[in-house]
Design a binder for these strands. Structure first.
Length: 211
DNA sequence: CGTTCGATGCACT
DNA sequence: GTGCATCGAACGT
């Protein structure tokens, strides 16, 4: 079932953690793709230097100031589309960046979209939606989905009863200002999560007693 | 395995 | 003109 607008109309960190395990679905002209969210980052308010709202309202960041439950898609590094969901009530600029999915539906279509960028070759399933740019590419999410209503059918988030354990928090990836906030939420140990090897939760099997 | 580095387009100063 | 909420090809171990 599709998440209602009230889901997004709450504190951003709360929405971020509850987004883990929810399913992002895109019904496009090419077909339907879907995946379970395993990694997100929160961007909260004009006081957060890494948030696009940091400079105050501009033409580009307008969706951040709008009502919750809408998409904010923008072009990054001239190459990648990044997909965010708007949280908090209108006037409070905040969003959650979706960084990685575990692919569920439409894997062949994802494969085709990703392969279109390269010469060819097959991509491992767990790498299809690993990283925010790759995810948007595999899901077919482009700039024309900016401001899309996530409570409609075309592009939405669903509850399918998926539960992940070992949910962890860390600093956000790829930013310098605002690194003190631990606003990245991810499933520890999941192969579809971006970045290097996720730090292990369990302690080393044998700690040396000698220094 | 790991790390480095170039590509690329647009918003903003 | 500058600086990105990145990716993956091309190297080195």
């Amino acid at each position: 079932m599709t998440l209602p607008r009230a889901f997004y109309d709450r504190p951003t960190l709360q929405v971020a953690t509850e987004l883990i395990g929810k399913v992002l679905v895109h019904r496009s002209a090419d077909g339907t793709t879907a995946g379970a969210i395993v990694e997100v980052e929160a961007y909260i308010g004009e006081e957060d230097p890494a948030c696009h709202a940091a400079p105050g309202p501009t033409a580009r960041n307008q969706p951040l100031y709008g009502p919750p439950g809408f998409a904010y898609v923008y072009l990054n590094y001239g190459i990648h589309n990044l997909f965010n969901v708007i949280t908090e009530r209108a006037g409070q600029p905040a969003a959650v960046l979706i960084r990685a999915l575990e692919p569920l539906d439409g894997l062949a279509l994802m494969q085709r979209r990703r392969a279109a960028d390269r010469g060819g070759g097959t991509i491992p399933d767990h790498e299809l939606c690993r990283g925010p740019g790759s995810l948007a590419r595999a899901m077919g999410i482009t700039l024309d989905r900016n401001r899309s209503d996530l409570c409609r059918r075309r592009l939405c988030l669903e509850e399918r009863g998926i539960v992940y354990h070992d949910v962890a928090w860390s600093a956000r990836i790829g930013i310098s200002a605002g690194a003190e906030h631990l606003w990245r939420c991810y499933v520890a140990g999941n192969r579809a999560v971006s970045g290097k090897k996720s730090p292990r939760l369990d302690p080393p099997r044998r700690a040396s007693t000698f220094a």
